[in-house]
């Protein structure tokens, strides 16, 4: 069990999992507490358009997906703030359109798309050093953001109206946070893929919510739960020879069920 730690690919995977647990732990706590899970999932799927575009233009698909993710996040917010179209409908449209654009570009790209399935379903073992650098930057930004602006983020998320009266920069904070959601989701796509990545931002956080109702405690618990389940998932993936994304999500779900049962039995 220890010896596989000496493989470089496994060390990279562990490092990636650690970074993902931190960034997803922080941003996911915000997503779950503010109940914007659906918009976050919409952004993820919409960013697939960027992956297709990256293939087509021969660029790093993660970078183009980031641009796509942020633009669709702002697009969804902007269109639904105009009031004519409901937010859930807007999300549905962006989600499907992004996927469609991605598929079109991939089909227009000559030749075979080699690691397409790693973007769809995730494969933490294909993570490159560049990906790790990018992930470190995003993790640093998320951590610095939540530490420096904790009270602003908390108050705006809790009650926008009152935050406005308190002269907090509500719009700036909302747009920054949704952009950060897009960045965190996209930078971690390699781990669980477009289809499963939302679970890294929701299952550990929902588990943490069973234990605590304090925002800062939820963040820390989510990071810990995320880390435990991704390392467990990695070992599962390695020994059972199954995709890492699915095994990590499975581990998260198992932890959730254990905690839920413990809560139920405690209540008697």
């Amino acid at each position: 069990m220890i010896e596989i730690l000496s493989y470089t690919f496994f060390q990279k995977a562990i490092l990636t999992a650690l970074l993902a647990s931190i960034s997803c732990g922080i941003i996911g706590s915000y997503v779950v507490s503010k109940r914007i899970v659906f918009i976050s999932d919409g952004i993820t799927h919409a960013s697939f358009g960027g992956i297709g575009l990256g293939y087509f233009l021969g660029l790093n698909p993660i970078i183009t997906a980031m641009v796509f993710g942020i633009l669709s996040a702002f697009g969804i917010r902007f269109i639904s703030s105009k009031g004519n179209i409901r937010e859930d409908s807007t999300i549905g449209i962006f989600l499907a359109l992004g996927m469609a654009v991605g598929i079109i570009f991939i089909y227009l790209t000559p030749g075979y798309a080699p690691d397409l399935s790693s973007y769809l379903f995730g494969n933490i073992l294909t993570v490159t050093s560049n990906d790790i650098v990018l992930s470190s930057v995003i993790t640093l930004v998320s951590s610095a953001g939540i530490i420096l602006f904790y009270k602003e983020i908390l108050f705006v998320a809790f009650d926008e109206q009152y935050a406005k009266i308190m002269n907090l920069k509500v719009e700036l904070i909302n747009y920054s946070m949704i952009a950060l959601v897009a960045l965190v989701v996209v930078v971690n796509i390699r781990i669980a893929g477009v289809i499963l990545i939302i679970s890294l931002l929701t299952i550990p956080q929902t588990t943490a919510l069973l234990i605590s109702k304090k925002f800062n405690v939820i963040i820390i618990l989510s990071i810990i739960i995320g880390l435990i389940s991704s390392i467990a998932g990695l070992y599962l993936s390695f020994y059972l020879n199954i995709p890492s994304g699915a095994s990590i999500v499975f581990s998260e779900a198992v932890i959730f069920i254990i905690v839920k049962l413990a809560c139920l039995s405690k209540r008697g």
């Binding site: 998320a157 809790f158 009650d159 935050a163 308190m166 002269n167 109702k213 304090k214 925002f215």
Partner: peptide, 16 residues
């Protein structure tokens, strides 16, 4: 249902 304590809600009145 946002996870925030009563005291933090009250303190938010001092945010400005």
């Amino acid at each position: 249902r946002f996870p925030i304590t009563v005291k933090n809600v009250i303190l938010s009145g001092l945010a400005s």
